[in-house]
């Protein structure tokens, strides 16, 4: 369970880092305190039950996904199908975002929810191919075994296309940075438009959680798991996670937001062929 708690703390650190890039590292804490004391804004004839389910299931999905993330060779739950479990839990975000957008009965929220579904259809297939490529090379769906299988050469080095696609899809699943269209300013905040008070806080925390878990899973998949000199394996995993997470957070202020229909075009014409070719190369080398 230590692993899940550490990832939770990293999620808070990610929020602080995002504030630090704007020159205000304490901003997320102030914002959290403000949101906790703020009264909820109510919309007319909102579906409160569905909104709450959507808002709560985002951080819940991140926490459940964190269960299978190994630090070194230890994970909170040693699952033999960790890759699939992680994939299933991050797909929960589709439901969470759509429900949160739909339930508040607001046009902007609805637009944001549908945008995320379209974006999901764009990133999910390349994402799955990238996951499968790493699993294929290690002959296992167990994240611990995949991490250990990279004794000689990190998967990030000899399957760069899969690694790059994984990082892109990590941004997309947390609707972060260039994939922030579902919460885009052009739709008055999209899904976030009508979420206020504690709802907004929980939802945003879930988004940081998802980003953190996606960064943490990149380590056993592509960055050699706990392998590294001097430090013990259980420490290398969080260190590498921090590096990936910092990279993901940094993209937000570096890249413009990509419209989801353009993301779709790129995903189907560039990313899917690239990952399929990558998988072919890996399959030929491994088998």
């Amino acid at each position: 369970m230590v692993e899940v708690v550490v990832l939770g703390m990293l999620a808070v650190a990610a929020a602080s880092l995002n504030g630090a890039f704007a020159g205000r590292p304490a901003e997320p804490f102030q914002e959290a305190a403000r949101l906790l004391t703020l009264q909820r804004r109510r919309t007319a004839r909102a579906d409160v039950l569905l909104t709450r389910i959507g808002v709560v299931s985002l951080p819940l999905a991140a926490a459940l996904a964190a269960l299978v993330v190994p630090f070194g060779d230890r994970a909170a739950v040693g699952s033999g199908v960790g890759v699939v479990w992680f994939n299933a839990m991050e797909v929960v975000a589709w439901g969470a975002v759509w429900l949160a957008g739909w339930g508040v009965n607001s046009a902007f929220g609805l637009v944001g929810g549908y945008r995320f579904l379209a974006q999901g259809l764009a990133y999910e297939l390349p994402h799955m191919f990238a996951l499968i490529t790493a699993a294929l090379a290690a002959h296992s769906l167990d994240l611990r075994i995949i991490g250990e299988a990279q004794g000689g050469l990190w998967f990030a080095v000899w399957m760069p296309a899969a690694f790059a696609v994984y990082l892109v899809s990590a941004l997309a699943m947390a609707f972060w940075g260039p994939f922030g269209h579902p919460v885009g300013g052009d739709a008055a905040g999209g899904v976030l438009a009508e979420l206020s008070g504690p709802d907004r806080l929980v939802f945003l925390a879930g988004r940081y959680g998802l980003l953190t878990v996606a960064a943490a899973v990149a380590v056993p998949l592509f960055l050699g798991g706990g392998a590294g000199p001097w430090l013990p394996a259980w420490l290398w995993s969080p260190v590498k996670t921090c590096a990936v997470l910092a990279l993901l957070v940094w993209t937000r202020r570096r890249f413009p937001v990509l419209r989801m229909d353009r993301a779709m075009t790129v995903a189907w014409t560039v990313l899917i062929p690239a990952t399929v070719l990558q998988m072919l190369v890996v399959a030929i080398v491994v088998v």
Partner: peptide
């Protein structure tokens, strides 16, 4: 049946969200 169980969860979430549309 861990793989099948998780796969059902994964596919059903994706499928039902597309269905919702």
């Amino acid at each position: 049946l861990h793989y099948l169980g998780v796969l059902v969860i994964l596919m059903m979430i994706m499928e039902m969200l597309v269905m919702a549309v």
